[in-house]
Simulated assay, not measured.
Amino acid sequence: MVSTGKAPESHSEAPAPIDADVTREVEIDDAMLGYRGPAACRAAGVTYRQLDYWARTGLLEPSVRNVSGSGHQRLYSFRDVLVLKVIKRLLDAGVSLQQIRVAVAALRDHGVKELAGITLMSDGASVYECTSDDQVIDLLRGGQGVFGIALGSVWAEVEGTLAELPGERPDATEIAEHPGDELRKRRAAKRAG
């Protein structure tokens, strides 16, 4: 059975911290901006059909606005688009959709700031989460890693593409409609004063 897991623990230093000013700016924008399906597709390099299928099957649902029915537009956050691009890269590398679902679930456990410090390594069957260079090296030494995706690089690509695309801000009503979303509540309270 193939499983996704963390890379072997290394006894070396922790990875260098991410530039807090850059991640803070993206986190603020992420809380207030959403991107419609066509913009998310363009930034992530996926088709609208893929995007719709992944939203309907729960692989990646939009976190800014997830609605159904005609006349309504889903809105994807920066983080959503980042994960979409990672999904696309994993698919292109031949990783099964089942393993991608496990990897996406593991990425959900990380804050936006932490994502830029993660490298996903895969041998085409399993996906490993590495948070330090030593973990990547350990995987390569063990013959497990065939390719890697440095999320920091993907972050920069997505950020550059989204800067050129139109975004929308959800209104207060939409934010209130998601009572179980603690992060959204905290962001709304922070904006309100």
Rank of each mutant, 00 (worst) to 15 (best):
M1S: 09
V2I: 06
V2S: 11
S3G: 04
S3F: 11
K6Q: 07
S10K: 05
S12D: 13
A14E: 13
P15G: 00
A16F: 04
I18W: 11
D19Y: 05
D19H: 08
T23A: 06
T23Q: 05
R24T: 09
D30Q: 05
D30K: 03
M32N: 08
L33V: 00
G34L: 08
G34H: 10
G34T: 09
R36M: 04
R36C: 06
R36K: 15
A39Q: 15
A39I: 01
R42K: 14
R42F: 07
A43E: 04
A44C: 05
A44Q: 12
V46N: 11
D52R: 14
Y53F: 10
W54Q: 05
L59D: 01
L59G: 02
L60Q: 05
E61T: 09
V64R: 14
V64W: 02
V64I: 15
R65W: 02
R65Q: 14
N66I: 00
N66L: 01
V67H: 12
S70W: 05
G71P: 13
H72P: 00
Q73N: 12
L75M: 11
S77T: 10
L82D: 03
L84E: 04
L84H: 09
I87F: 04
I87P: 00
K88E: 07
R89I: 05
L91F: 04
L91V: 10
D92Y: 01
A93K: 14
A93V: 02
G94F: 03
L97Q: 10
Q98S: 11
Q99M: 15
Q99V: 07
I100T: 11
R101D: 08
V102D: 14
V102I: 08
A103Q: 14
V104H: 13
A105I: 02
A106L: 13
L107R: 11
R108L: 02
D109G: 09
D109S: 09
A116D: 05
G117L: 04
T119D: 02
L120V: 09
M121Y: 08
A125Y: 11
S126C: 10
V127W: 06
Y128M: 08
T131E: 11
Q135Y: 11
L140E: 15
R141W: 06
R141E: 11
G142H: 12
G143C: 02
L151W: 01
L162S: 09
A163R: 14
A163T: 12
E164C: 08
E164Y: 03
D171V: 04
D171A: 01
T173A: 13
E174F: 10
E174G: 15
G180C: 01
G180L: 07
E182F: 02
E182K: 00
R184H: 03
A188R: 04
A192T: 01
G193M: 06
